[in-house]
């Protein structure tokens, strides 16, 4: 669960730092520069931590394959949601990691 949630949240943060998608979700084209920096940093940090749950679950070999799969699944999910229900896409980025942490604990 966390394996999917982390890359999903990471991708969402990165995509909110892009003007086109920022407008899709929040209706504004302008992104304050400080916010953009925070979003970018958060996004990359989340992506950097995202292999950890996969590696913990399946070891080095299986875990790295699993991580690639999870990245793909998360990005596909985000892209499709963004196209049809952008608000939900952003909301899910908060819900999924919370759920993941709850399930993991």
């Amino acid at each position: 669960m966390l394996g999917l949630a982390l890359p999903y949240a990471g991708f969402t943060a990165l995509c909110l730092a892009m003007e086109r998608h920022h407008e899709q979700v929040l209706g504004r084209r302008q992104i304050p520069p400080g916010l953009r920096l925070v979003l970018r940093l958060a996004g990359w940090l989340l992506l950097l931590t995202s292999p950890l749950p996969c590696l913990a679950l399946a070891g080095w070999g299986g875990g790295s394959v699993l991580w690639c799969g999870m990245l793909t699944a998360a990005a596909l999910l985000l892209t499709l949601l963004l196209a049809y229900v952008p608000r939900l896409a952003a909301g899910l980025a908060l819900v999924l990691p919370t759920l993941g942490l709850l399930l993991a604990s």
Partner: peptide, 21 residues
């Protein structure tokens, strides 16, 4: 990796998804 027989249910699901993609 090609035949994916090592994949458990979760990873097999991801392989299926990627194959469909």
């Amino acid at each position: 990796l090609h035949v994916g027989r090592f994949a458990g249910p979760l990873l097999r699901g991801l392989f299926l998804l990627s194959g469909l993609a």
